[in-house]
């Protein structure tokens, strides 16, 4: 039976996915922590109010906006960059799963993974503009 082979491959895929997720979360948490500490040491005594939602707020609502400000070492933009990395982690795992199913020649699940990936990309297009 090929069933045994498949489950072994699934197991191996899951191991790699586990590493991918761990690295993504750790790196993003580290970035957020370091940038957050810098933000606090700069502005610990000032007050910010969150009781009213501001549509415009910061310019940290697009990928290019975040990167533009992050390279000027703006701490809030670097936190946001860490959060973008965090959001990208599950997206990367879906793409990796598609690749892994391709190696297994499981075309049905290559298609399933790519559908999920397409949905994710469609929702992220709002960030590109």
């Amino acid at each position: 039976m090929t069933n045994r082979d498949t489950s072994w491959n699934d197991y191996k895929i899951e191991q790699i996915i586990g590493v991918l997720l761990r690295v993504g979360v750790s790196v993003s948490a580290l970035i957020v922590f370091v940038a957050g500490s810098i933000y606090l040491s700069n502005e610990r005594a000032s007050r910010t109010h969150y009781d009213h939602f501001h549509e415009e707020g910061t310019q940290l609502t697009t990928i290019s906006g975040v990167i533009h400000q992050a390279i000027t070492a703006e701490p809030l933009a670097i936190i946001q960059l860490g959060l973008l990395l965090l959001i990208a982690t599950p997206v990367a795992r879906v793409l990796f799963a598609a690749f892994a199913f391709m190696l297994e020649r499981d075309w049905m699940y290559v298609a399933v993974s790519l559908i999920v990936f397409t949905v994710l990309m469609a929702t992220l297009t709002g960030l590109v503009i």
């Binding site: 549509e55 910061t58 609502t61 599950p90 997206v91 994710l120 929702t123 992220l124 709002g126 960030l127």
Partner: peptide, 20 residues
């Protein structure tokens, strides 16, 4: 995580995700 990532893009572009 994958489910949440699908709404995160919408949230972030609308300014719901404040880094502070």
């Amino acid at each position: 995580g994958v489910t949440a990532a699908a709404s995160a893009g919408v949230y972030l572009s609308r300014g719901y995700i404040d880094p502070r």
